[in-house]
Design a protein around this nucleic acid. Structure first.
Lengths: 242, 242
DNA sequence: AACGTTTCTTGAACACGTTCAAGAAAGCGA
DNA sequence: TCGCTTTCTTGAACGTGTTCAAGAAACGTT
């Protein structure tokens, strides 16, 4: 009886903690949207969430850390939006575009201050870096989703590319995100156009890579990309200098 | 007489102002190297330079702005190092590698805190962004230097690529810089290897682009890259939201 | 119920980047 | 030389993210 009750209370406490965390993120995102990232103070976030400043720092190590919570939410939302759209489509280029466009749509409300998020994410040792261990869950989920995109298509992928392609597509996605952050055209029209145009180009390049003359180039390119990826991951794992 | 004297005094005053600016940058870079970017306070920079905090802000709008001064110095230094090395070499891949390696060598002392610089430069609307109007002089100088690299080589460049290649190489250089910032291997060995390997791959890709099958792909790729570049430049010209 | 331990919660305090009102110095026309 | 303007120079003061010592609340054990 006591045990059960204890369990219940613990669960309730965990729920309350989770609700406090959630309230803080809600408060933060609301204020971010209203005033932008810089103009939103931690004092204001705490006040909006109904907690003290110190308490906000008990749940989130820093202002940046609030963003990680946002990432997690976003990833789930994007997958929910994209999955039904992917169901009917077998063309690889189309499937790539669907996922990227779902991402753009889901993230649209946050575009105005995405630059401020990115500023922090761009720092190699930041936990917000997409290559960091802290981002591993979200990253792995994303790569797994790209694998679905590839394997659900009717494209014939050269063998030596098949294993690597999902992660390379994720890297390409990070590039698109970079462009999106910078894009100031209305409704990020430039990014949308680049997605529409680059996806087929990418798929054609994949197809071409089966040609003898291009194949050697592909191997070298993959070798370079392997180095690049290793460096990014290693940097994100690196300890900050004292 | 008074005119001449006035001139002299004015010139002397300008020199003094320039020397103050220079002293502040020296102080900043010294402290950056000793303690890193974050641990260096503006108070410490001012003290080291022998001026007041307010005076440091009279010459530099912000802590970040100190970095712009560093960029200008660096660009000059890199060109001085690279030019004699380029003289004997006609192979395009080798020439590309020479310039990049000169850059890596010149920047080596600042690598430990490059991430902190980059963090700011990565923000689209930051004047420190390589695409910003404020960076235009340094950027134009760099692109012009890449043009020298191309035109001093014996490579046969397809016509429709010739005009764009210098700026594309500069973009590639920015990508290498991104990798360099992230690179934590000893003596940035990974970046050096990527430079050594990617330069020939790039040149081979350029050569291949003359093939009929690859040519169409090239045109589309160039179109996409044109969009991308436009977006980056437009973002850097954008006014910060209020 | 009573006590010790862990888990939260608080707001004052700190260090930093940055601003600003006030004044000093330099330049310049009479 | 005397005023007047422009160009520096100053350090205190402001707002911010973040820390911390102190205590409250919840929990587990007896």
């Amino acid at each position: 009886m006591r045990g059960l009750r204890g369990c219940g209370v613990t669960a309730e406490r965990e729920t309350k903690a989770a609700r406090t965390r959630s309230a803080i993120i809600d408060a933060a995102l609301t204020l971010f949207r209203e005033r932008g990232y810089d103009a939103t103070t931690m004092r204001a976030v705490a006040a909006q969430a109904g907690v003290s400043v110190g308490n906000a720092y008990y749940y989130f190590a820093s202002k940046e850390a609030l963003v990680q919570g946002f990432y997690d939410r976003a990833q789930v939302e994007v997958m929910a939006v994209a999955r039904p759209l992917l169901d009917g489509e077998r063309d690889l280029a189309a499937r790539i575009a669907i996922l990227l466009e779902a991402w753009l749509t889901a993230m649209a409300p946050y575009h105005p201050f995405a630059g401020k998020f990115f500023k922090n994410a761009a720092e190699p040792t930041s936990p917000l870096s997409p290559f960091s261990p802290e981002s591993a869950p979200a990253r792995d989920a994303a790569v797994a989703f790209w694998r679905e995109v590839v394997e659900g298509s009717d494209a014939r992928i050269p063998k030596r590319l098949r294993a690597e392609l999902p992660e390379l597509l994720w890297l390409y996605h990070m590039g698109i995100v970079l462009l999106w952050v910078y894009d100031r055209s209305p409704d990020v029209a430039v990014t949308r156009r680049v997605v529409r145009h680059s996806a087929p180009v990418l798929v054609r390049a994949i197809a071409l890579s089966r040609l003898r003359v291009v194949g050697g180039l592909l191997d070298d390119t993959l070798a370079v990309l392997a180095d690049v990826r290793r460096a990014f991951y290693a940097a994100a794992r690196y300890e900050e200098e004292p």
